[in-house]
Nucleic acid binder design. Sequence first.
DNA 1: ATACTGTATGTAAGCGTTTACATTCACCAT
DNA 2: ATGGTGAATGTAAACGCTTACATACAGTAT
Lengths: 338, 338
Amino acid sequence: MEHKKHTPTIKDVARMAGVSIATVSRTINGIDVVNEETVQRVRAAISELNYIPSSAARMLASRKTSTIGLLVPEISGAFFQSMLRGIERGTSLADYDLLIYTTQHILANSDRRSPLAENNTDGLLVFAGSLPQAELLRLSRSQFPVVLLHQTAVEGVQLPAVTVENRQGARSLVDHLIEVHGCRRIVYLEGPHEHEDSMWREQGYRASLDAHGIPFDPALIGHGGFNRHLAQAAIEKLLADNIAFDAVFAGDDDASIGVLVALREAGIAVPQDVAVVGFDDQDFTAALLPSLTTVRAPTEQVGYLAVRQLLRRIQGETVEMKLVLPTALAIRQSCGCG
Amino acid sequence: MEHKKHTPTIKDVARMAGVSIATVSRTINGIDVVNEETVQRVRAAISELNYIPSSAARMLASRKTSTIGLLVPEISGAFFQSMLRGIERGTSLADYDLLIYTTQHILANSDRRSPLAENNTDGLLVFAGSLPQAELLRLSRSQFPVVLLHQTAVEGVQLPAVTVENRQGARSLVDHLIEVHGCRRIVYLEGPHEHEDSMWREQGYRASLDAHGIPFDPALIGHGGFNRHLAQAAIEKLLADNIAFDAVFAGDDDASIGVLVALREAGIAVPQDVAVVGFDDQDFTAALLPSLTTVRAPTEQVGYLAVRQLLRRIQGETVEMKLVLPTALAIRQSCGCG
DNA sequence: ATACTGTATGTAAGCGTTTACATTCACCAT
DNA sequence: ATGGTGAATGTAAACGCTTACATACAGTAT
């Protein structure tokens, strides 16, 4: 009747090993010097009792959580998966935990239990559009470690960011369409509004038009939302409106799926009648028929580097304010090549 | 000089509102009755001070973390993304946090900082193949709330599980191939070995062969690993070995991409020369050309329900031991239809 | 007046760690 | 013998909450 069946604590270990809890703590954390023999005894007790330190107690006492938070507007798109993989690699390499938050709810009802995970993490990775400006401002002022993903410009705030070379990538892509395939009426499907990527890509698109003396036609801008279904609807609308075009820059690869489907259903041949290009170079792009011409973006690497940056900030080091990873054209068949 | 600039605690709130910390705690958590007027004062103090409760302290004091952990072998495949979305929906609806662990490292060096997140979460969602039997056994015995994903049979253990109807789905798929398209030599690309799904799908495949009097030919089994690249290699190997076949059941949609690419490169027409079918019905399948015939699996729903089950277990309720969600044929063109 | 009831709040004991500081002891130089 | 040193360990005070229990008070029934 003497087993009160409770999960073992550091005290139990200490008692069993015949030492004080301080010594147990020391051997667990490997700080200070502990006699080798004592270490052995403590280790033995730990595995004997199947002891697992309470991370809550540890966090409370040490004021650090060994956890980083990831804020995303929503989990969707194969894009996200690559980034997450990079992030997970970064955190687990550093022995940090990863907490994921979707902010759609937060944005809607502001009455969340944990206002912002600040109390729950040592730092935050914030994906484009997951937080309103005001919140970002507050975070920045509070000195809480934050790294922005695919978002660089926050009005009046300087927060470190990691993103990819959108403008140049889009520019080369559209250049290719114009120069190699003679396209003149190129549709651009923009992404979500909060999403800075879309703005840069559009700038690249416009710059290319400019450089080639092609006037910008607002009628050729559709809303693809970086999303398959929206993109499909956007193309259907253009078709219904009888807007003529000879190419579609879908905004990203996800959207290009919708474009492909819409065109196919309308009996329009790709790339013979209309060229289609995407952005990101996701896994499935090579398997589409025609295989998709797109821009390769090192998405996993973005995630990984963002974690590295964040970890540095948590350590109090100063980091590069802006990391822009290079992109490269991935020419396949949907533009008319091959 | 009296601002020692520390993050506000419950004490600061209490002082400012002129009440005791107990009252603050009560109003925050909405338990017990608190005078409406007092509530207002406390609320005001909270927002004035920008107070955020320390979740570590809260966890420690209440012995619950409001967090659930997700264990996956690795983050890959579009499949994962759907499931994660469902899981996230479930957790955020219940105001729980979500902690993600990739177990490849754990499986390799067993000397992780947090042996298993048991101390860190109120319950665990364990995806197929992320944990060795022994560990599962230990968890099961420790009474720690666990729900298995896409894995039902753990030797000697009864743990609640959520999965999809693999066998029947595969069976219908192969039936279709045989009955409608007259296929006789159907390749099956198996998934990762730890992955129970693959086993069931193979059983469905075999059952269909049996039912149609077609002998099982081991030469037609390849290793696709539910992965695009492995699948591509597997098909290339079959081709190189001169094994004749008139259809490929790729195991899952990811693998079918590899199959499509391998066949295309070999100049084999789909579906004219060889029919190709997948499993899962991921987002991109409809955009492939030919569009992919596959089996629709409610992956997001699996994630969502798994969370519900887990939360029930955490609440101490008993739950259904096995939830098997129905699958349905998604007939498109890659089998020869349409 | 007295005792009871219910409402609103306060008091203080944990929760399981980390860590600054104190202690002990052996050893060596004086 | 005396003091100083360093290594190994112990003591106890946080850390910021939750919650069982105690208290205070107003209203109501006796």
